[in-house]
Design a protein around this nucleic acid. Structure first.
Lengths: 160, 160
DNA sequence: TATTGTTATACTCTATAACTATA
DNA sequence: TATAGTTATAGAGTATAACAATA
């Protein structure tokens, strides 16, 4: 249980929920504004996530994206429209089931995703630079736990 | 440094940034959909945050909100319009400087905020219920650290 | 009939640019 | 001239409801 320094009620789920509620929008806003500032690489957060998902699941359809990203099908469909129009992903009818579409990331999409990531990741990392290694490791672990709880997608794409 | 179980590169800021980038949108989406499902209490995340800020800083103006919430003035102005129309906040001209507006939360706004919070917090807490106390405490601490890094507003409203 | 997508419509959040009113 | 805020305009993300096409 470590020390008493901060032992008040930190293991109380309600306190934890409160902090998640306060902190998450702050982090999100930084991510969004950072993404937005990177014109013309210019991928929104949802677009970035669609590309990431599609890189992991080439050939996936609209419903798979909607489900795993956590949006409705019309929303996913429109999001995909935008990416197809910009030729960042390719959409074609599935041969065996012609209701389905098969989506995959194009070369350009791959580049755009990498560019976004190349800018974003060090920016966020830079904001963490002054933290202690212990704090950083704690955040890393907390994110893993949260992902398992909040993520529809149990990916276990083990970084380790 | 604890054990070796997960010791790979967790204290690497880049790895940590990666996880933040992956996890934060997932958490955010749950929060949003949860907020949205609570009709007719029906506060969006930005609205919720404006009310929270205004509770802490009654009499604040549009620019203060914009700055602390992290949005532009027109965005804040419109957001405020919506809340004023619904009579969740009150807007009046500042007596000493008539360019400024003075905003405060109304009774109805207070109720709406509390209702949103009353629903949201236990919902999020419920999702954490199966985690170990250690995990929960770790998330709590991680959120505190992240808030200090990503928050424009250094509130130190010590819950402890 | 059930599934996969898309279209239609509407609302919120967001920004930039241009404007008004006050200091 | 500079500051506080609003209006105009535009675009993305989101949803629900209604629809088409295929199975």
């Amino acid at each position: 249980m470590k020390l008493l320094e901060k032992e008040c009620t930190e293991s109380d789920p309600l306190v934890c929920a409160d902090r998640i509620l306060e902190t998450t929008p702050l982090v999100m806003r930084v991510i969004r504004s950072e993404i937005r500032s990177r014109r013309p690489a210019d991928l929104s957060v949802p677009q970035f996530r669609v590309l990431a998902f599609l890189k992991r699941h080439p050939g996936a359809g609209v419903s798979a994206i909607a489900e795993h990203i956590g949006i409705t099908m019309p929303t996913a469909s429109k999001l995909i429209d935008g990416l197809v129009n910009r030729e960042l992903i390719a959409r074609e009818a599935s041969p065996e089931d012609r209701r389905r579409v098969s989506l995959k990331v194009t070369k350009a999409g791959e580049s755009a995703w990498k560019a976004s990531r190349r800018d974003l990741q060090p920016k966020i990392a830079g904001m963490l630079a002054n933290l202690s290694p212990e704090d950083i490791a704690a955040i890393s672990r907390a994110m893993e736990v949260l992902r398992s709880v909040f993520g529809q997608e149990q990916d276990t794409n083990g970084h380790c």
